[in-house]
Amino acid sequence: MDINQNAISYVQSLGIEAMVVRDIFTFFPKERFDLVITTHVLEHIPKDKLISVLRHFKEHILTPNGKIFVAVPNAQSNTGCYWRYEDFTHYTLFSAGSLIYVFKMAGFSNVEIIDKDALVGSRGLKRVFKQIFLKLYKLNFKFWNLVTNSSFHAPSPQVFSYEVKALASK
């Protein structure tokens, strides 16, 4: 489901069932879903509606054991501000901690941050080099946080990619 008819038409051309849904609060499917995937959607929803939207997914769209996968731009990334202001339709960005907070406020009991180091899909030497450079980056990051007295909330996972990915369950 999407609000964009062109996106729906494309997905339908692939043989996938899809529909336009302009108002999520009016969507009550005949059958609930085990998994809902939303990629780069939540940042387009006004803050005052975010928790209600997620709660609607939890209460009316997911099965009792259902899960929701979310990917959003990462406010903590090197390009966080870019993603916030490059797309003027973004209302907000998320850190891993703020995404967990929003899910908990919507009533989800378990939230897992996925691929914190952005290594999924990397193989062989590319993966090794990414791991090495990421360790150096983390040390540099930690050093400058010490120098400048900067910090993060302890329970907030640090994510080192342009997006935060999470899987939440009821």
Rank of each mutant, 00 (worst) to 15 (best):
M1T: 13
M1N: 11
M1P: 09
I3C: 07
Q5E: 06
Q5V: 08
A7N: 15
A7T: 12
A7S: 14
V11E: 06
S13W: 15
S13N: 11
I16G: 09
M19L: 09
V21D: 01
R32Q: 10
I37T: 10
T39N: 12
K49F: 04
K58D: 00
I68N: 01
V70C: 07
A71I: 07
V72S: 05
N74L: 08
A75Y: 13
S77V: 06
N78H: 13
G80D: 13
Y82F: 14
W83G: 00
R84Y: 07
L93E: 05
S95Q: 06
S95N: 05
I100V: 00
I100P: 00
M105F: 04
G107T: 04
N110W: 09
I113H: 10
I114G: 10
I114M: 15
K116G: 01
D117K: 10
D117Q: 02
A118R: 13
V120P: 06
G121T: 09
K126D: 05
R127S: 02
K130Y: 03
K130Q: 11
Q131I: 07
I132Q: 11
L139F: 12
N140F: 06
F141A: 04
N145S: 07
V147K: 09
N149M: 13
F152V: 01
H153F: 14
P155Y: 11
S156F: 13
V159S: 14
V159I: 14
A166W: 00
K170R: 12
